[in-house]
């Protein structure tokens, strides 16, 4: 498949009153590819996704972006009605907790049919047939029976399959998956990630994969953006980011995650914790936790600086990162 741009986000910011939840976010996603958005709690990764989907109440949140170009259209130009037509049809979203996202008093079938009827010209019978087809697509055993069951009868893994069925019912071009497997057991996680990957290959949809799990990103994302305290601090090809992280936070994040396939003596740690939005330090937000911190870091929030091959990092120390990282920094 030709690599054409599906989503381009430029200078996205979200404010809640005086708090800047997210600032200056740029994102690029090509058709059929997966972009991993990684970060810890409070990094702003879910806020970014919700802003792209225009899910914030404008009376509370101020969302600003220079561009949110999706499939040749500028989403910031669309009114709410036009946006509603895109949401759920061309851009879909799945969440961490499929139980709260599913309506407990509607059957599985009714919830898929609902989506189909909103977005497509289909009769009820045709929509029901399509809903059954979707359940089979997401490999739900005994799909015909499941169609008339309520969500509480399903396991966590099956519920996430139903969520995926609803999300892909209209064959979206972009799927935003926000921690899609975080609540699932690891053997079930492997099944769901495998399913998403298969569906992506079949349908050619782009996936924005939001996760805190570096292992999930390593396996499934083509590109990665690392978020910290409301900003993207590093972005680039997945292999590049893992092998030669250029931002001290990315490096710390990779090294503090214990590997499952070999032993380490002591885990590398990043001192302190992610600052709350109202307590973010001046200059580089990672400064107070950074082992390489120097006075210049406090003067201004550093912009993303290119390192070749599409990798960019927001660190003024970038020049020092020319040498390959220490052996223990490169996992695997």
């Amino acid at each position: 498949m030709q690599q054409t741009q599906l989503l381009t986000v430029r200078d996205l910011g979200v404010r809640l009153g005086g708090l800047h939840l997210v600032e200056g976010v740029d994102l690029d996603l090509a058709r059929g590819r997966t972009h991993g958005l990684v970060g810890e709690s409070g990094s702003g990764k879910s806020v970014t996704a919700m802003a792209i989907m225009r899910l914030f109440d404008p009376r509370l949140f101020q969302v600003r972006a220079r561009r949110i170009a999706f499939d040749g259209r500028e989403l910031t130009d669309l009114d709410n009605r036009q946006m509603r037509r895109i949401r759920g049809a061309e851009i879909s979203m799945i969440f961490q907790e499929p139980m709260t996202a599913l309506n407990p008093v509607l059957t599985v079938g009714e919830q898929i049919i609902e989506t189909l009827l909103v977005h497509q010209r289909l009769g009820r019978a045709a929509a029901r047939r399509k809903a059954l087809e979707m359940l089979e697509w997401v490999r739900i055993p005994a799909a015909a029976r499941r169609l008339d069951e309520y969500p509480h009868l399903l396991s966590g893994g099956m519920r996430q399959r139903v969520m995926i069925a609803i999300a892909i019912a209209c064959r979206p071009k972009l799927l935003i998956a926000d921690e899609p497997t975080t609540a699932l057991d690891v053997t079930i996680q492997a099944q769901i990630l495998d399913l998403l990957h298969e569906l992506q290959t079949e349908m050619g949809m782009g996936i924005l994969l939001i996760t805190h799990d570096l292992g999930v990103v390593a396996g499934y994302a083509d590109e990665v953006s690392v978020m910290y305290a409301g900003r993207i601090v590093e972005t680039g090809g997945t292999a590049q980011i893992y092998r030669t992280p250029r931002h001290p936070y990315t490096e710390g994040l990779i090294r503090s995650h214990p590997p499952v396939d070999r032993d380490v003596d002591e885990l590398a740690t990043i001192p302190g914790g992610v600052p709350q939005p109202h307590l973010r330090p001046p200059g580089c937000r990672f400064g107070p936790r950074c082992a390489h911190h120097r006075a210049a870091c406090d003067l201004a929030d550093p912009p993303l600086i290119g390192h070749g091959g599409g990798q960019r990092a927001a660190c003024i120390r970038h020049a020092d990162y020319g040498a390959p990282p220490a052996p223990e920094a490169a996992h695997g």
């Binding site: 990630l193 495998d194 292992g215 390593a218 396996g219 997945t238 396939d261």
Partner: peptide, 11 residues
């Protein structure tokens, strides 16, 4: 089933 932190390897 555990994801490896190794780019491109999928469990």
């Amino acid at each position: 089933s555990v994801p490896r932190s190794e780019p491109g390897t999928r469990p």
